[in-house]
């Protein structure tokens, strides 16, 4: 169990800069997520931590040790890949025991393997071949294999992306339980923002080879610092406008012909962000008329696409409206980003 630190990590492939200077601190025992669109550099970052890629510049520290020049076999990491990467010529037990060949446990190997298989709910499956297992079982074997030598850092690269939705949700909970039980410092890579919000102690949004924002899921969701983060994590209605001084408290944001009241003191060009769930037909503030374009039923409510001033506005509503309605939002629910 160890603290993990990346400073100024860069990696270039030919002319393409994959990492443009990554600075990160992952706390001891934390479940930390790197989330971003494909090609943003999150997997490259993970591979640098594992020692499978060599950064062009920057340092990677496990605790107080600089591991930048340490080969992957000596770093003490456990990695789980998206497509399991189980050794096809070995049984489940041999797969899980593989890392113990190089790092024998204190007790017996058999006991350790049995304990790991028990941990991932695969007790008694040790003699199976990998190709006799379902996708979910394979991924649990991969997890047990990564954890068997008690790594300092657990690295998970899209481990749930190959699985179907229901299984993914269940395995996500299980993963989180195992991680908490062992308290192992964990870096989790995913492109799925909902997964990142659900599972992380803290998360980092990665964008174009850089860290866009780091924080607890609620904090980043409620307080995005850039338009990219605002739109990537969850849905958002973002509108460019100009902030002018307010009367007593807060400010006014002017977009086209309309003015919206917001909290806080803002001046100059800004982007106004309002979450779909913050829009309401009964709101008493910031009202505007919008025309219903599409309605999607989601089970617990509706996602309604409106047209307002020639642009798309999305709202989450309890009832399906028709025709034209008046929408509004609480000034405190809006996020204002300087441009």
């Amino acid at each position: 169990m160890v603290r993990l630190e990346l400073s100024g990590v860069r990696r270039t492939y030919g002319d393409v800069a994959a990492l443009r200077g990554i600075d990160l601190g992952v706390r001891d025992g934390e479940f930390f997520t790197l989330v971003g669109p494909s090609g943003c550099g999150k997997t490259t970052t993970l591979r640098c931590i594992a020692g499978l890629e060599t950064p062009d510049a920057g340092a990677i520290r496990f605790g107080d040790t600089d591991v930048s020049d340490v080969p992957p076999e000596a770093r003490g990491v456990g990695v789980v890949f998206q497509h399991y990467a189980l050794f096809p010529t070995m049984t489940v037990r041999e797969n899980v025991a593989y890392g113990l060949r190089f790092d024998p446990p204190d007790g017996s190997v058999d006991e350790r393997v049995a304990a790991m298989l028990d941990l991932v709910d695969l007790a008694g499956m040790g003699d199976r071949d990998p190709d006799e297992l379902s996708g979910g079982q394979r991924q649990r074997v991969a997890l047990a294999r990564a954890l068997a030598p008690a790594p300092d850092v657990l690295l998970l690269d899209e481990p749930l992306s190959s699985l179907d939705a229901r299984l993914r949700d269940r395995l996500r909970l299980e993963l989180k339980r195992v991680q908490r039980e062992l308290g192992v410092t964990t870096v989790y890579v995913t492109h799925d923002q909902a997964e990142a919000l659900a599972v992380s102690d803290r998360l980092a949004v990665v964008h174009d080879g850089r860290i866009a924002q780091v924080g607890e899921p609620e904090a980043v969701y409620d307080g995005p610092e850039t338009r990219f983060v605002a739109e990537f994590l969850g849905e958002n209605n973002c509108l460019d406008g100009r902030a002018v001084g307010g009367e007593t408290e807060g400010s006014l944001v002017r977009a086209g012909e309309t003015e919206f009241a917001v909290t806080g003191d803002h001046r100059g060009p800004v982007t106004l962000c309002v979450r779909p769930e913050s829009l309401d037909v009964n709101a008493s503030h910031n009202q505007f008329d919008a025309r219903v374009r599409d309605v999607e039923f989601l089970g617990d409510g509706y996602r309604v696409h409106f047209e307002w001033n020639g642009r798309d506005v999305v709202a989450r509503l309890d009832d399906a409206p028709t025709g034209s309605v008046t929408l509004g939002f609480d000034p405190a629910d809006a996020v204002v980003l300087e441009r």
Binding site: P72, V79, H83, L86, F87, R145, L155
Partner: peptide, 27 residues
């Protein structure tokens, strides 16, 4: 041969030649 399997062997403690012997050669 899955490159990820070879990489996994490396992160589990196998030097390059050992990963070849244990993962690649049997395949």
């Amino acid at each position: 041969v899955d490159a990820r399997a070879v990489e996994t062997a490396r992160t589990l403690g196998a030097p390059r030649w050992r990963a070849f012997l244990d993962v690649v050669a049997p395949q």
